[in-house]
Design a protein around this nucleic acid. Structure first.
Length: 609
RNA sequence: GCCCUCAUAGUCUAGCCUGGACAGGACACGAGCUUGCGGAGCUUGGAACCUGGGUUCGAAUCCCAGUGAGGGCACCA
């Protein structure tokens, strides 16, 4: 039980009020006013027929003593609790004992996190990167919460964009081909070709016809063109995944749209049609289409109804997506087969859906998290609404669209279609970051070691910059802020962690910390321990709310507190052996909690820097 | 037309769900300390809730109406 939970119990016992309500009245007290404050006076004033201040007084008199509470004070309407040495002692012991498992939950749900689902015909730009990092951090948070997470990537290998890229691959003249063909990563040249083709289509209607022909063959499947398209898409994804790996992003499974069409689409469609959840339009402008009636949900829109099956019998993106989500929730009999796609640097294999392959256990989840841009809110709402209409109300509630705003560099905005992504890819961002990080690394370090550490600093800086701000905020990426070693940045936190580790190393890190059994904590020490003991609550909330930036905010505050502790409380040179032992235990606790937090954000911790 | 986000100091941002003690933090700016357990540190000063109503003992937070910025309302994805 945490200090807050313990105090909530004490108040609850004294007042008879629900423990959860008591919990909500608690917050960290202000400096000098105690450690944990309760605003219970406000809550119970009416019931007790007295002023909030009187109520607080009254309650204060009836509190049972507890070994973790040194004293209590009613200050105005607030009830302030001062924590005892016994609490701090126990808190340090507990973190030392649990180490990397401190704060870990046991939610034990099956959860799918889908991200980033980038079209397989271009390199990642920084918008895709924001998606991938949010997905990765969310998956980490949920795993720490105790969920069994499937990191899933949806691949739209049947899209017009792939058809255009394939046309370019097969037909572009030498002079029209991007100059760097063969030198760049495949995702880069496929993307550059796509831009060329898109331009050509504007001018030449014949090209447009030809691309449409390719698309038709891809959709029909079972032919050379479809095979070629799939091959091109996979080449592109493999290249995109090199970017992913460089940023420390990994996946468990990739599901391709072509496999959705072959394996589960017709079954899903039949169950949709049979359920009455979708309607076949007999007249009007949508005549012959199967539509999801959204007018009840989205009043006043010009076209609230969403077409799932076109009048020519083919499915729209949303139509396929609804069926895909039925599968994710384990509501279909059909299933995919899988093959190994790539062995990732974390030594985990990523699997990909394919026509002939082995069976694997994916899908069948309790909770779905889709990391998708805010501009797709409406189609995501359609999917949820249909789940509801199909009678899966529980599932609809556990269908989470984690939407995020655009990210860009101050210089320009991105438009994949127009090709202005050139110069703003995730690869180029990391290269630039490495270059800039290089002279921030300790001078004594040279050669490969220096390069490696610069890489870790760059990844940490970029990941932290993306993950420290709320996803619904627009994000402008500014190098001088991102790589600043002062203030709220990845490198600052990396440094704090390195520094703590170094102290422990010097003290002989092999052994477990052995905090003394009796100890008088000073105010700075108390502050650090109190903050450390907040971590399980923060981690739990970040998971429930799916807000990765809660983790970054917390560890940044924690690192600041540690810095204050560090400057005024010598560890290795502590006045007494007793103090040294306790402070070492505290440094170890700090290192563990900070490492967990950085691990969740995917910020690597260099050995030195 | 309708729907959805966002709006906090010179700049960036947390808090809003679940209303309470002087709105937290960073960068920049001012003053001081620190030659170290490893340079990013510490102490300290000035500086902000878009507007107008409402609910409440109490509103950055909830409700209503505006304003500004962005996004959505395809047989595109």
């Amino acid at each position: 039980m945490s200090a807050k939970e313990q105090i909530a119990k004490i108040i609850s016992d004294a007042t008879g009020e629900d423990r959860k309500i008591c919990m909500k009245t608690l917050e960290m007290a202000e400096e000098g006013k105690g450690d944990i404050a309760s605003k219970i006076g406000f809550i119970l004033a009416k019931k007790m027929k007295m002023s909030p201040a009187q109520a607080a007084q009254e309650i204060e008199g009836t509190l049972e003593p507890h070994e973790w509470v040194e004293k209590t004070e009613a200050t105005g309407p607030y009830l302030n609790f001062f924590l005892s040495n016994a609490f701090y002692q126990e808190a340090v012991r507990k973190i030392n004992a649990l180490g990397n498992n401190y704060g870990r939950g046991n939610a034990n749900r099956k959860t799918i996190v889908e991200s980033p689902s980038v079209n397989p015909n271009k390199p990642w730009h920084i918008g895709h990167l924001r998606n991938a990092l949010l997905g990765d951090a969310s998956a980490n948070i949920l795993e720490f919460h105790g969920d069994n997470v499937q990191r899933m990537d949806y691949i739209d290998d049947l899209g017009l964009q792939v058809a255009q890229s394939l046309w370019g691959y097969l037909n572009l003249d030498e002079k029209d081909r991007p100059q760097f063909l063969g030198e760049e990563k495949p995702d880069h040249w496929i993307g550059a070709e796509y831009v060329k083709v898109a331009e050509k289509i504007e001018r030449e209607p014949l090209v447009k016809q030809s691309v449409k022909g390719i698309l038709r063959e891809m959709e029909n499947g079972g032919n050379k063109t479809a095979e070629k398209a799939r091959w091109l898409a996979e080449e592109c994804i493999k290249a995109q995944y090199e970017t992913a790996f460089a940023y420390g992003v990994y996946h468990d499974v990739l599901i391709c749209e072509s496999d959705i069409m072959r394996e589960i689409f017709s079954e899903g469609m039949e169950s949709l049609k049979g359920s009455g959840a979708v309607e076949h339009e007999k007249s009007g402008k949508n005549e012959g289409c199967w539509v999801a009636r959204m007018s009840g949900k989205m009043r006043g829109m010009t076209e609230p109804d969403k077409i799932l099956i076109r009048s020519n019998g083919t499915a729209t993106y949303t139509g396929k997506d609804v069926i895909f989500h039925l599968w994710k929730f384990g509501k279909l009999k059909g299933d995919f087969r899988y093959g190994e796609f790539v062995l990732q640097p974390n030594e985990e294999k990523a699997y990909i859906s394919k026509a002939r392959g082995i069976e694997r256990e994916y899908g069948n989840a309790d909770v779905l998290v889709n990391i998708i841009g805010v501009e797709q809110k409406y189609p995501q709402e359609v999917v949820r609404h249909l789940l509801d209409l199909l009678g899966y109300e529980k599932e609809a509630k556990k269908f989470i669209h984690l939407s995020y705003e655009h990210a860009w560099l101050p210089e320009a905005k991105f438009s994949g279609r127009k090709g202005t992504w050139l110069g703003y890819t995730a690869d180029e961002l990391l290269e630039e970051g490495k270059k800039r990080a290089l002279d921030k690394v300790k001078k004594e370090l040279t050669g490969n070691v220096r390069e490696e550490i610069a890489g870790q600093v760059a990844v940490g800086a970029i990941r932290y910059a993306f993950l420290k701000i709320a996803p619904e905020k627009k994000l402008v990426f500014k190098w001088n802020e991102v790589l600043s070693l002062e203030g709220d940045s990845g490198p600052y936190l990396q440094y704090a962690c390195v520094r703590a580790k170094r102290i422990l190393e010097k003290a002989g890190m092999e052994r477990e910390p052995e905090p003394p059994l009796k100890y008088e904590f000073n105010e700075t020490e108390k502050k650090l321990i109190k903050e450390l003991s907040e971590f399980p609550l923060v981690a739990g909330q970040a998971a429930e709310k799916l807000r990765p930036h809660m983790i970054s905010g917390y560890i940044y505050g924690l690192a600041n507190t540690f810095s204050k502790f560090y400057t005024t409380n010598p560890v290795l040179k502590a006045e007494t052996e007793n103090k040294k032992e306790m402070r070492l235990a505290m440094v170890a606790a700090f290192r563990d909690v900070l490492s967990i937090g950085l691990g969740i954000l995917g910020v690597p911790v260099p050995k030195k820097m």
